[in-house]
Design a binder for these strands. Structure first.
Lengths: 346, 346
DNA sequence: CTGTTAGCGCCTTCAG
DNA sequence: CTGAAGGCGCTAACAG
């Protein structure tokens, strides 16, 4: 078992050398009460003489105030905010985390990280654990489409902000990317360039982004007085291999599309690879910018957005609700997208 | 100020509806003592009748045990490990974080994140803050080259693991990438392909990776019985623009190198861009793999390694030291690299 | 300016 | 099997 602090008679100035020192140890060493130490550490009125003695003791003992105990006593939460994402390995989420960290940091709050790997079960456990650790609030990128367990009511009033996915059946602050607008703009660009058969390669409609980006693709057509050709639409692919396969299907047709819109960068990559392999001159547009995009040897249009900003806004909403904006109705904000041409130049 | 719990006479079954319920609230509601609630939650011996009543009360109140208070009482640390990195936006570190999270998660530990943005000052503050929060231990990617403030002694005995950079003047567990071996192997590959003037584009030697990778470059030459041409060595560039400029300098020469070794992917990108712009056929090798590398239209050799594994090992070392391996001497482990050919095919 | 008392939420120890 | 007392480290609220 853990070695307990020595209990045998120990003079007031003798201090257990092993364990992390407590305020009382400092007090004893400085010959004052714990309260005085507390006051010194809080910069309250203490005579400069005793203050010096206390600080000396602090230094000698390497004392560091236990913020956990402090928060408990003050009835405060932990001064940490939970961040639950589906996949930290995805640059989108790591940028989001970075943005959230920036804002949290400015307010002296620390970020506690949880990665769900997209598993709803893990999300449940994580949220529960974070609640038990008394986080001040949490930012969640939901793994599933049911969100009742994220209801502030269930959470015991701890505020929550959803990111990248809209709330389903609950009423909470949310930060979204303009998936619809970005997809619409990119598709419109292709149409404006004269393309009349624009294929669609997208992740499943069950995903929010998949659905929204498809809506955008469709809307762009409607606004141009066109109707997408259903036979050029593939709403299944979700990784590079499946995107390659789907692209091949479309490009092999006699009436192959002259352009493709892809709903994320993995799909774009798959399509790009296949186009290049076939030596086709199909034009490509896709959601998500990526480094290196301009090293590609043929042009490509990408929908770009600031993932870090998503994190910043999420943290900002949360912090506001932790303070002044406590009682406000749920807010929703949307991070804009821009259309960028990449590739085939420098 | 915060609304205090109503103090007027309140029957045993009435519970404050606003604040997060405590064990006593549950106890009152179930008509038992707090101890019994505690026991139920710990699955200790309690008659199944009372257990049911308690669990019912827990459910009705939405009670969740306060792990913070629990840990305080038990004299345990927080059950969290700190992760301090220089730049979460860099995929290397986000992968590292993901790996560490995986391992921590398996042991029921949560990760607290800190981003130093490479500033030593921030690193100090972060480490200090994490210590005050009583993390079980920490994984640090040091921002600077002086590490005295990371000495376990200074840290009050809290274990620490360094990642990506070796300890300077302190004796702690460390996880490194085989920078030397990777650079040597990549350079050797170029030499084996017949190149006799291999340029070097690398980040400053003040950085550990810069120094190690340069050593590898040099060693490969020596082992081949060659001496690198000093005039083809540029140890300054640290981002894409400066890499472009440095590459141009080398490629503009009458006796331009036939191959270049670059110490990280940004530098590789810069060099690639310049080679492509000039239409040169200089062969490229570089540290760090990158997605899309195989979409490039000319071949490239990259030094690849598993960043997630760095995080996994760091967490594993830390966890071991938290448990059985508490007293061991400092260990050091090195994550291997592999040489991969990329680009100009599919 | 400084000390004492009490208690945040929980659990160990010791009585029933 | 259950409860009462005491305390983890810290700090309000009162004394003095």
């Amino acid at each position: 078992m853990a070695e307990k602090r020595a209990d045998f008679t120990e003079s007031a100035t003798t201090v257990p050398s092993n364990a992390t020192p407590t305020m009382r140890d400092v007090a004893a060493r400085a010959g004052v009460s714990a309260m005085t130490v507390s006051r010194v550490l809080k910069d309250e009125n203490v005579s400069s003489a005793t203050r010096e003695r206390v600080l000396a003791a602090v230094r000698e003992l390497g004392y560091r105030r236990n913020e956990v105990a402090r928060n408990l006593r003050l009835g405060r939460p932990s001064g940490m905010i939970g961040l639950v994402v589906t996949n930290l390995g995805n640059p989108f989420y790591s940028q989001l985390a970075l943005g959230a960290e920036q804002v949290a940091e400015q307010h002296g709050l620390r970020l506690v990280l949880g990665n769900t790997a997209g598993q709803v079960q893990r999300e449940h456990e994580l949220v529960d654990d974070l609640l038990s650790r008394r986080v001040d609030g949490m930012i969640v990128v939901p793994a599933g489409s049911r969100h009742q367990h994220l209801d502030p009511a269930v959470l015991g009033g701890i505020p929550i902000v959803l990111a990248a996915s809209p709330p389903a059946g609950i009423d909470v602050d949310t930060v979204l990317v303009d998936d619809f607008g970005g997809a619409r703009a990119a598709t419109a660009r292709l149409l404006a360039d004269g393309h009349r058969s624009v294929g669609f390669l997208g992740n499943p409609p069950t995903r929010y982004t998949g659905a929204e980006r498809f809506r955008g693709y469709w809307a762009a057509h409607e606004e141009a007085g066109l109707t997408p050709r259903e036979d050029l639409i593939r709403r299944g692919p979700d990784d590079i291999p499946s995107a390659v396969a789907a692209a091949r299907e479309l490009l092999d047709r006699a009436d192959a599309p002259t352009a493709l819109f892809c709903t994320n960068n993995r799909i774009t990559l798959g399509a790009y690879r296949e186009i290049r392999r076939l030596g086709a001159d199909t034009v490509l547009a896709g959601f998500d910018d990526f480094e290196l995009a301009d090293l590609l040897d043929r042009p490509i249009t990408v929908v770009s957005y600031d993932a870090r900003e998503v994190g910043r806004r999420a943290a900002t909403l949360l912090l506001d609700r932790l303070g002044p904006g406590a009682g406000q109705p749920a807010r929703r904000t949307m991070v804009p997208t821009t259309i960028v041409r990449r590739g085939a130049d420098s």
